[in-house]
Design a protein around this nucleic acid. Structure first.
Lengths: 101, 101
DNA sequence: ACTATTGGTTAGTATTGACTTACCAAATGT
DNA sequence: ACATTTGGTAAGTCAATACTAACCAATAGT
């Protein structure tokens, strides 16, 4: 559930495509696979990685499994970025001032 | 200069380590390599990827090359994330309401 | 019970890319 | 001019992983 896992999960183009299709709303595995140029097992494997990274959650509905975004995981990642960028930019400002002196 | 490139650049642990060391301030290639368990050429290659992704910039200083964060690129990425997450969460809210109906 | 549908899992393959070693180029000092 | 320092580049290797095909498990309908 670390931010590293989320980074690595979203770095792969196909996996990012799966994730971004879920932005439009929850979907079954088969429906996701139809809109992508890879096989259903490939989509299933990507969903597992996304789930383990805390980016999506799964719900059973009969024989289907409906995947949707994990809003907590996403918010967590976003919060991390906010802090990260703030720190980075602040440190850079400090270094600029130091070299000006 | 797409956000995809930035994602992929930061997904690799060693490369992320290089980037995060630059948060503390600008540095030469050799200095970066000393603090990492990989060779100097490896660091050089990672810096090239980070530079091509628009995450760091380089400045020559005699025989040295000093790398520092590209604040514009970082800010751009952060802005993208902000929009991205907002859209994602909003779409999810919509889907919740739709399924409640 | 049998069939159909959905999707997770396994095994094997092929590609990608991170890394090292060796080499080369450019700037500085003596 | 020559040696030194710094770092980018090229070639080759090896490990990681995205993908497919085949198989299996579970649920729903008849």
């Amino acid at each position: 559930m670390t931010y590293e896992r989320k980074f690595e999960a979203l770095a792969v183009p196909t996996r990012r495509a799966v994730f971004e299709r879920l932005i439009a709303g929850p979907s079954s595995v088969g429906a996701l696979a139809e809109g992508l140029p890879v096989s259903r097992p490939a989509v299933s494997q990507h969903l597992k990685v996304l789930k383990d990274a805390g980016l999506v959650v799964e719900r059973r509905e009969g024989v289907r499994r409906i995947y949707r975004l994990d809003t907590d995981g996403i918010r967590e990642m976003r919060n991390y970025f906010d802090r990260f960028w703030d720190d980075a930019l602040e440190a850079y400002q400090r270094s600029l001032e130091a070299s000006d002196a």
